[in-house]
Amino acid sequence: MATLLIAEHDNTNLNELTARALTAARAMQSPVTLLVAGSNCQAVAEQAAGLGGIERVLVADAPHLAQQAAEPMGALIAELAQDFQAVLAVASSTGKSVLPRAAALLDVMQVSEVTKIVSPDTFVRPIYAGNAIETIQSSDPIKVITIRSSAFEPAGQGDASAPIVAVPTPKTRHCRPLNARNWRRRTGPIWDRRASSFPGGGHSARRKHSTSSSNPSPPNSVPLSAHPAPPSTSGYAGNELQVGQTGKVVAPDLYIACGISGAIQHLAGMKDSRYIVAINKDADAPIFHVADYGLVGDLFEILPELESKL
C-alpha cells in the first residue's frame, strides 16, 4: 500500500513546502504518489514529477477545484484515499482545512502538525503550544497526517520524471455549492518559511510605527513582519505574518525578535530557529530565556544602528 501526498501549489507553481512534506512521506516506508488537485494545474504536475522518490503524479484538474476549496477537495481525497495506507499534506491553511474533512469522511482521526515520523503508525507532534511533545500511535486503517514543514528538510529532485496520470474529478455530493469565492492578497512585507533570516516585530514596534510620525520608524529593509497576536483590527501587518501557536511556525537560521515579550504562544512559532536574537528594552522579558543573543535597549535606536552596520 502506498502513501498519498497532497501537493501544495497555486495552480502555477509547486510550493517548496511540498518537497519538505515529501521527506515525511518517504519516512512512511512505502511508495509515494503525489496528488496535484486544482484547475489548469498541468504545469504544477510537471514540476512535481521531477521530485525524487515519487512513483507517480495524479492530476485532478477541474474548474471547481480552482480554489482548492475544502468541500470538493475533501471528497476527492477521501475517495482516492481508499487505495492508500496514508494521506499526507502540509499543515498550511489549505491542508488544515481540507485534510480533516477527508479524514472524517474516511472515519479516521487526523494526526495534526507532525514533526517526526517514528514508524508508519507512530508520530511525534507538539501539544499545548509546544510546551509538551506527544508521541502517539494510530490504530486507524488509513493514516491522515498534516506535516509541520519546518521540521523536515526538503527532498531533492529525482533522476527521471515520474509518470503523470489524470484522475476523474467527481463533483462533491457532500456539500452545497459555494459561490463568489474571491481572493485578496495583502500587500506589505513578504516572507516565506524558507527565508534564512527572519525579523519579528511585536506590538511595541507596531504601535510606535503607526501612531507617531515624529518617532523614528523601523528601517524599511528590516520589515517588522512577524507580529504577534492579538492585534487590533487596524492591523499593522497581516495575519499571514503572525508567528506562533495559532499562526505560522518558522525555523530560519536567524530569527530576530524585536520588542517581543516572549509569550508562550509566540515562542511556539519560532523557538526551533537555529539562532534567536532578542532586542527588548525590558531586561526581564521572557524572550531572553530562549534567545542565543540578547540586547537590552530601545529597538528604535538599535534597529537603525543595526541596519547601518549590516
Partner: peptide, 21 residues
C-alpha cells in the same frame, strides 16, 4: 483511535548571552 505512548518536555534551548552593543 490514538494511543498516547509518551509525553515529554520539548528540548530546552541552552541559555544564551547578553551582548552589550
Amino acid at each position: 483511535r490514538h494511543t498516547v505512548l509518551s509525553v515529554t518536555e520539548p528540548p530546552a534551548r541552552k541559555a544564551g548571552t547578553l551582548v552589550a552593543s
